[in-house]
Nucleic acid binder design. Structure first.
Lengths: 147, 147
DNA sequence: CAAAGTTGATAACCACAATTATCAACTTTG
DNA sequence: CAAAGTTGATAATTGTGGTTATCAACTTTG
């Protein structure tokens, strides 16, 4: 993973221009929990190259694959985060993300779990499976170990 | 599983009436691969109680959860069928379902695989996870074995 | 310090997914 | 064999999800 791809360098208007969409749309995606842009101390958003690619992927899902935003959220919620971060049984019992079926895990706070101190934006659950097409591959890998 | 719930007894118009939707809608769901009604020799559809519950679940996903039909299909396609039916590595290599990300496995024919001879309508991959809310539970169970 | 850009929030717009109506040909029912 | 129901296919309808415009208040930039 190239560190430069993760570097937050684009303002929201620049990001919108590069993506060919409007600024409000980017904010909606964030509000829905599809993306987590970096924020300056002043609360202004900054987007990295990886963020842009993530949005492009979301747009393909919406426009080409005709999957609704809520559908994407439901799909994200199926990522077995508990396995990726290897959280304990006790953590799972108290973790909202573990039991949710319509919100990605990174839209939750995770009090009293291993994720409590982690930044979701940097967590592999968020960053590794941003490309829509890779979630099933993750399942193939993880599930494969079981048999 | 009560056998009577699986018994195909309702005609399409009866099923539509019971569900409060139109006949064409039921056909659309079938065409999209969301449901597999039983068919008489004469090609007429018959629906079981389980079929109706499956449709109710689909309707909740569409109307309440706001997940599009293509979104539901994408979610279904994430069910780790290869693990449920325990198919071989060779099977996976040639199975369209294993590599699909937008069509449920039961919308494929499965030549030269363990599923070749199985009826998808009766396969647990199709029947057990019809209730939208159970797919993540399946993942929890299967993935759990891995750790 | 003025111009340009950002913030969150609300409201307006509209493309189109989801549903239904309609059709002729065919099957089932009594 | 007539009436009612089904078939697949096509076309029409409509509700609304996704997008954008607009706003006043605030921040950054040069």
């Amino acid at each position: 993973m190239d560190i430069s791809k993760e570097e937050p360098i684009y303002s929201i208007s620049t990001a919108a221009k590069l993506l060919g969409i409007s600024v409000p749309t980017l904010r909606v995606y964030e509000k829905e929990g599809l993306i987590i842009p970096h924020k300056k101390e002043s609360n202004q958003r900054l987007y990295s190259q990886a963020d842009l690619e993530r949005v492009e992927c979301i747009r393909r899902a919406i426009n080409e694959k005709k999957i609704s935003v809520n559908g994407i959220k439901a799909i994200y919620s199926l990522i077995p985060c508990w396995e990726v971060v290897n959280c304990s049984q006790e953590d799972r019992a108290v973790c909202g993300a573990y039991n949710s079926e319509d919100q990605p895990c990174w839209t939750f706070t995770h009090p009293n779990t291993i994720c409590e101190s982690k930044s979701c934006r940097e967590c592999e659950v968020y960053s590794d499976y941003s490309n829509c097409g890779t979630i099933k591959n993750l399942l193939k890998n993880i599930v494969g170990k079981a048999s």
